[in-house]
């Protein structure tokens, strides 16, 4: 009964084993990849472990407060600080081991040549509600 974020992003981790950009795949390989992701989510719904899954547009704007009465400043995108978050899945599972197993399965999604991508996914625990009994 703990929630984890399976985060697909490109910062800090080494390149995937099967590291071919998606636009170099065949259309069938792309379809197979998308099907794999959908099946994975559907399976987690059936096991009662799925919470949320979203994909993000590759680029966004940077926004910050610019003082009382002024519109927020927008800037970017900054190519040099690119930290592309491609998407995420939130799961609710009984153990950390289960979260790691599922992330491993998700990382096996097929890519170029129909072979698993072996991409690195980050597994981050959610901060939970505080327990009642602490002593």
């Amino acid at each position: 009964m703990a929630k984890y974020l399976l985060l697909k992003h490109y910062r800090g981790a080494p390149a995937a084993v099967n590291d071919v950009p998606m636009d170099q795949w065949t259309p069938e390989e792309i379809s197979a990849h998308i099907q794999y992701m959908q099946d994975f989510a559907a399976r987690l719904e059936k096991t009662g472990e799925f919470v949320d899954g979203q994909a993000l547009a590759p680029e966004g704007r940077w926004v910050r407060y610019d003082g009382e009465g002024r519109p927020p400043v927008t800037d970017g995108p900054f190519a040099e600080t690119k930290d592309l978050i491609a998407g995420w899945m939130v799961i609710d599972v009984d153990s950390y081991e289960r979260a790691v197993d599922l992330a491993g399965e998700l990382s096996a999604a097929p890519g170029a040549g129909g072979k698993p991508i072996h991409e690195w996914l980050e597994v981050r625990p959610f901060l939970s509600a505080p327990p009642t009994i602490t002593e």
């Binding site: 009964m1 929630k3 719904e45 059936k46 096991t47 009662g48 472990e49 799925f50 919470v51 609710d92």
Partner: peptide, 15 residues
């Protein structure tokens, strides 16, 4: 109560 979608909880219970 456990902050998961109702469909997920329904599956968890029927399973």
């Amino acid at each position: 109560a456990y902050l998961v979608p109702e469909a997920t909880m329904a599956q968890r219970i029927s399973r």
